[in-house]
Nucleic acid binder design. Structure first.
Lengths: 163, 163
DNA sequence: CCCGCTATTTATAAGCA
DNA sequence: TTGCTTATAAATAGCGG
């Protein structure tokens, strides 16, 4: 969808396929997150990665309760002052740039930690393994439980990585 | 995403939410299908629908989902663990690395913000404005506070991006 | 390989029948 | 509500760097 209309077929070129995989996975995750937020429902996507063994992305609505990002964005660069405008704006620019990097890294970290959580889920008695033997109507309950588990896990990881 | 930029928040209006749910669910399913086709991988999404008494729906199909999971299950346990262990250590490494970068950037940010504060002070308009009458101990405390604030910011960021 | 930058293709929020 | 239509917002393929 862009410079050229993509035909819906397996991409044979390895690097191209990997690139597309990354881009689209990211987009997909975003979509799932938006859906959960906008409609107040629970949903997640499971994707097996061609890169590693298996990967799973889970996107609960864990975060919508946390409007912290917007709060962060609101953090102001102070007002202008007459004498140091140039220096100040330079600094502000630098800070903005660094902040962006920070955010990006944070997001990466988040992604990785969640993946790790999912791996643990898969190896243990996570929802996915159980899904095989379960009736569809039970999935809803499982989702909830899984989300709770992951939430807890994330807290633990966060604490840990924070040293 | 269209006639107006939508804010990412729960849609309180019932019919509007339902409409959005339908539209976006459809789009999401399409995205999942495209991803599986283009990249030759297996993936599915689980969405609990508010329409049908919160019964979960699985896409693209439950069959595919079960297939994906059972395939993983078929792998000898040892192999499963292997994959996951490898992935795990890889992730841990990545996280460590990213964390270090985060710390570094935080420090940079801190420095810059302190400078900015000082500029403000010099221009007589900033937080430090009131410092004129303070002694050095107070300044030291302020700096410490500043560091804490920045640390908190980073935490907020990290948490938020985890949403 | 990873990033960032468009040119385009898609996905959609509103309108309207 | 159920679709269609259409103006816009998003996603993203192909390209440098």
């Amino acid at each position: 969808m862009s410079r050229k209309k993509t035909k819906l077929a397996y991409i044979t070129n390895d690097s191209a396929r990997k690139t597309t995989y990354k881009k689209r996975t990211k987009g997909l995750v975003k979509k799932v997150r938006e859906l959960t937020t906008l409609c107040g429902i629970e949903a997640f996507a499971v994707i097996n990665s061609p890169d590693f063994g298996f990967q799973a992305e889970v996107w609960p609505s864990l975060e919508d309760a946390r409007g912290l990002l917007s709060e962060f964005k609101k953090l102001p660069l102070s007002k202008q002052n007459n004498k140091m405008v140039n220096q100040k704006s330079f600094l502000e620019q630098s800070i903005a740039k660094a902040t962006q990097q920070l955010r990006k890294l944070s997001e990466e970290n988040c992604q990785k930690e969640l993946k790790e959580v999912m791996f643990e889920s898969l190896s243990g008695k996570g929802i996915l393994q159980s899904l095989n033997a379960m009736d569809l109507d039970e999935v809803g309950r499982l989702i909830k439980q899984n989300l709770t588990d992951i939430d807890n896990r994330v807290r633990v990881l966060t604490k840990a990585s924070r040293s």
